[in-house]
Nucleic acid binder design. Structure first.
Lengths: 339, 339
DNA sequence: TTGAAAGCGCTAACAG
DNA sequence: CTGTTAGCGCTTTCAA
């Protein structure tokens, strides 16, 4: 005998009530109209039968699926962004939502298809996540679907978004250096034109200028933000006569290269050179010797904030879009010492 | 004026046919009963209106949601496992499926809840992924839902599963060493009792025994598979008089520690010591100096295989469960040299 | 070759 | 306080 899963009608029959009553008793809707005893009877019957509502049928009726579409450009792939998914997932689950994931491999033409695929499934809203902090246009396919941007801002501010407070994080790691007495702080960065680079660079510039130093003398740029680029740029900076006493790296990968360059030049970190960085990648920053002081990208917190904001917009679709800056906490480790 | 999304009835009306005809014309069902001209008219009307089927309504009727539940124990979080999601995602999408993700943080009591939450959403099948190669019991909540295990096997073989061919990968890296003339190959491993450790260790044992060597003399174990553990164990192995000429590391993180130990002892890799490893983590193996030869965990391929297998089981629920060993390709780099 | 009508399992309006 | 009924948008018999 094949046992089909129990449905509401089975529960209702077992409790001796109508399906309407059963529905309201289980969902707690309908105000006071359900008697306490009836409710208890229905609940008991549901538990007895192991009843689980069919949310597809419910969704058809209520127009709510309790699913959130998560579209990422390679986001599931890139190592640290997993935390973004995690943050979104946890916040969603706490509110009874699940994430329907889709990855576009960064291909913009796929984004439209991805959004459509999610909309067909009647998701209640969409999270659009990018691998790196970016400024993007909200795809027109979104239509009136509530959307929140994760790790990117909309060019026209038409959608809610959350991005890391790069400026705050940069000031934070620079303050570490300042507290240790460093003034001549070099910066190794990438030539790639991304928002993160721009803000970190500008903030560092301001900081040096405030000391009356010329930033351009202490800046070195590599084509890519990789170990190799960090090595090359650090070599340029550290072989000068008036080499900096500290280096602020665009990210941890470049910092790896800086470490290697210092090593080859016989400079000891942090005694001869202090190093601070950005991203705080778990496989790099704490593993380097000495462990690296770095500003963390708050991926988990951003993911969480994004769904909370999305849920808010589901309740109030006409609310003003909010742009949120998420603080980047500083992970203090052993790569900074007094001059 | 609020424009509600077009539904099938709108398309049917625009094409001058019934909804039944429209449905069949769009889905290509109903055999030959739809005339070519009618079909074209319906298709045109659908395109014109920008019609997108409501898959919730469809799912209610067909009992197919074209969604696959993906339950992972922290899988979204752990860095390299993103590739597993990617593989599953790509294969699913190609077949018109989407992944509904849920993370249990490794808590077994949450697993049951996760499965129930997915079943309520009427997913067509479930992928259960673990962070590391494990042997697990299929949770009873699964019931008759088709399931495939990812990176773990079921204790009783009752579910299809795919795991890395650890033995093959180990033989592969050991062959690299053998080809370079190494006989005295040490092994640094973890004390954690996981399937991966067991197989890699056993295979290495066999290999040494075949040369008439006593494996226990060349084995060193750390409490955890971290950099620190790699360092400590390598120190033990390398400070012996008859130190090994090569070390096979349980994983890349331990290899990092081995590198550090070799460095401190003034041993140059690969000239004084060859090193091979397992996992081929993208942030570690290629970034070390010298780049590390490592057996790759085929996460992407496993993810892909798992949904392909799941889709097969949707067609044929009574097929025998299949247990698949996915090959671990060797990434040859610069950490091996002749004795 | 097509249309009419039933029904998937649920919720919500309307009666009582 | 509770039951009856309609209907969410689609697919699929059944009848023509």
């Amino acid at each position: 005998m094949v046992t089909r899963p129990p449905r509401l009608a089975d529960v209702a029959k077992a409790a001796g009530v109508s399906t309407a009553t059963a529905s309201m008793a289980l969902n707690g809707t309908g105000g006071t109209r359900i008697g306490a005893d009836t409710r208890a009877r229905v609940r008991a019957a549901a538990a007895e039968l192991g009843y689980r509502p069919n949310t597809v049928a419910r969704g058809l009726r209520t127009r709510r699926t309790h699913m959130i579409g998560f579209v990422g450009d390679d986001v599931a792939t890139t190592p640290f962004a997993g935390q973004m998914i995690r943050g979104a997932h946890d916040a969603a689950r706490k509110a009874g939502f699940l994430l329907l994931m889709i990855d576009t491999t960064g291909d913009p033409s796929e984004t439209g298809e991805a959004i459509a695929a999610l909309q067909e499934r009647q998701i209640d809203g969409i999270l659009m996540a990018t691998m790196y902090h970016q400024v993007i246009d909200v795809p027109e396919e979104i239509g009136s679907t509530p959307v929140v941007l994760l790790d990117s801002r909309s060019a026209d501010g038409s959608a809610s978004s959350v991005v890391p407070d790069e400026r705050g994080g940069t000031l934070g790691v620079l303050a570490e250096l300042a507290a240790a007495g460093h003034r001549r702080i070099g910066h190794v960065t990438t030539a790639e034109d991304v928002e993160a680079r721009r803000i970190r660079l500008d903030t560092w510039r301001e900081h040096l200028t405030a000391y009356g130093l010329d930033p351009d003398e202490l800046l070195a740029e590599a084509p890519e933000a990789m170990t190799r680029g960090g090595y090359d740029t650090a070599m340029r900076l550290l072989t000068r006569l008036d080499r900096p006493t500290a280096i602020f790296c665009f990210n941890d990968r470049m910092a790896m290269g800086v470490y290697r360059a210092a090593d080859e030049l016989g400079l000891s970190i942090p005694d001869d050179l202090s190093v601070v960085s950005y991203d705080d990648q778990e496989l790099i920053a704490p593993e380097l010797a000495p462990a690296l002081t770095s500003a963390a990208l708050p991926h988990y917190a951003m993911g969480r904030w994004a769904v909370e904001e999305l849920l808010r917009r589901l309740d109030d679709p006409d609310a003003e879009p909010a742009g949120h800056l998420m603080p980047c906490p500083i992970s203090r480790r052993d790569s900074v010492a007094p001059v």
